[in-house]
Every structure is written in structure tokens, then in C-alpha cells.
Amino acid sequence: NQSNSSSGDSEKITLKVATHTNQEHYSYKIGIEPWMDKVTELTDGKVEFEVYTNEQLGKAKDSYNLVKNKVADISFIVYAQDKMPLTDLPMLPNIYGSAYEGTRAYWDVSSDGGIMLEKAFLPNGIRPIFNFAVSPFTFGTVNEKIENLEDIEGMKLRTSGGLLDLTLNELQGTPISMPVTDARQALERGTIEGIMTSWLSIKPYQLEKPLNYIISNAPLNGWAAFYAINEEKYQSLPQDVKEAMKKASEETVINLAEKINDSEEKVKTSLKEEGIEIYPLEDEQVQKWEKELDPLVNEWISEMEKKGLPAQKVYDEFKKSVEKYKE
């Protein structure tokens, strides 16, 4: 089932799509599914998709290799930092303020003409077809409310590792790595005192049951991910298919940006209804935290620059876009 680009328009093209999530995940429901429908629609059914969900083709950590090695044509990539360290940028603390800003700004630098596309993705042979970002992470705790920096000191908080550990170390907390599926139990039994989490992971893992306090405006790390297509494959596609994909991508990104923001707001409302205290840090504290965490961003930039990667420029462009999308 090798598809061929040069020959006639009537020929069907089948693309393999891989994701480690199930079909209920928001990245599927409001991401790849509408994107695929749109492409099929715009090409009058010429392009079809074979979807492999639930890690059927490979683990989440192999998602980059899947598309790079053409095991799949399109894959949901949540982890490619070792190949493309620049994609760590949205995962640094205090880079953007909301899912909407993050999603739009990330796409600005990753779509045609964007610096991330040129400097990170294309050199590695892959091209994002859309991306999204969730609002920055927050702290949720069981017994002790975090109101200032001192409260975090020595507190055992679950993180998903990587850059989040750096942040927590910087804030003097104790990062505990464990699978998120174990987090609820660990919170209930006091193995951990709290968790560093995104808003959208709270309900799927029933963390709302043990948690009592959640900060609404912690200037912590963001998180972003993307679906990407193998660049060689992309270039082999007929022009009309590429156009259709571009159009579907633009629509999907805007839709994701709005809908993720909405669902996060909904989560917050429903958490409040369930009696969880969602409270803001005072402005003075927010500034203190930012001051504490800013060096991490600077260190990251200089690390990248040392490797010859234009991190400062990517950072500037990204920040410029974020400003643009601030309400």
C-alpha cells in the first residue's frame, strides 16, 4: 500500500496515524480526528487514514522515532526533547499564561516560516501538522495550603520528571517521580503531600478526591505536544493534498486553542463545586516565584546556545507571539 504522488489524481492515498492515547483523549477528539475528517473532506475522499491508537505501534516515548522511521506517517509526539531540545521551550516555567496563548504561539513558530519549524523540526525530518498547549501546571495539595515559597520547602510533591523536577528543586520542594496512575492513592495515603499537575489531568486520574487546595495562578511550567508528519512523506504528497492539510491544520489549531481553554475553565468550575479551594497567590508572591524561576529559563537558553541552537531567538519569537494573543 505504498502511495505514489506523481501519478493521477484519482489514486487513493492511505496514511498511517499512530498515537499512544485512546480515542477519548482530547488530543484525539478535538485534534487528530477533526483534522483527518477535514483532510478527507477537502480531498473528496482521496486521502484516507489508518489509525493505530493505544500504543499499538509503539510506546509514547518512541512516538518521535515512529514517524521519523516511517513506521507510521503521522504520529502524536509528546516526547522528542533528546532529538529536538528546542521543543522544550514551552515546558519551561512562566513562558505563557494560558492554553490559548500557548497553543497559538507554539503554532506561530512551528508552521510555515516559523523559526522552530526551520531550526528544530525540519532538520530532523518531521513537520508538525498541529500542536496544542495546556495552561501552565499548578500545585494541588491535600492538607497544607501553599501560600508562599516557604510552604513548599521540603514538601513531597509528585511530578512527571524532567524539567518539572528542576522547577521543584529551584522552589526547594521534594520531587517524587511516580506514574500518574498511582498518584491518587499516594495522595490519599500521604506518600506525597501534593502534586504538580496540569488542570486537564486532575479529573481523568480522580485527583479531585484527595486534593483540597489548588493554586489558580502559579507561574509554573507549561506543557505542549504536537502531531507530526514525516517530511519526506509530506513532500511526496500532491500539491492539493498539502493545501488541504494546511487548511485543516489552521482550523484544528484555533479550535484546540479555544476548546482546551474552555475545558480548563469547566474543570475549575466543577472542582470548585466539589468543594476544592481554588485560590490565587498574592501578586507579590507570584513575582517572587518568577524571580526564583527565571534563572532556569536563562540557563536553558545559554545551554542551548552552547550547543549551537538559536534558543534566544526562538524564545524571543515565542514571547512576541504570546503577547499578541494575550487578551
Binding site: 533528546d82 532529538k83 531540545p85 520528571g161 524532567g162 520531587p175
Partner: peptide, 8 residues
Amino acid sequence: NNEVSSGV
């Protein structure tokens, strides 16, 4: 590529 793990 001097790839390193991200983390502490």
C-alpha cells in the same frame, strides 16, 4: 548529537 536526558 550529544543527546542528553532532560531532568535534574
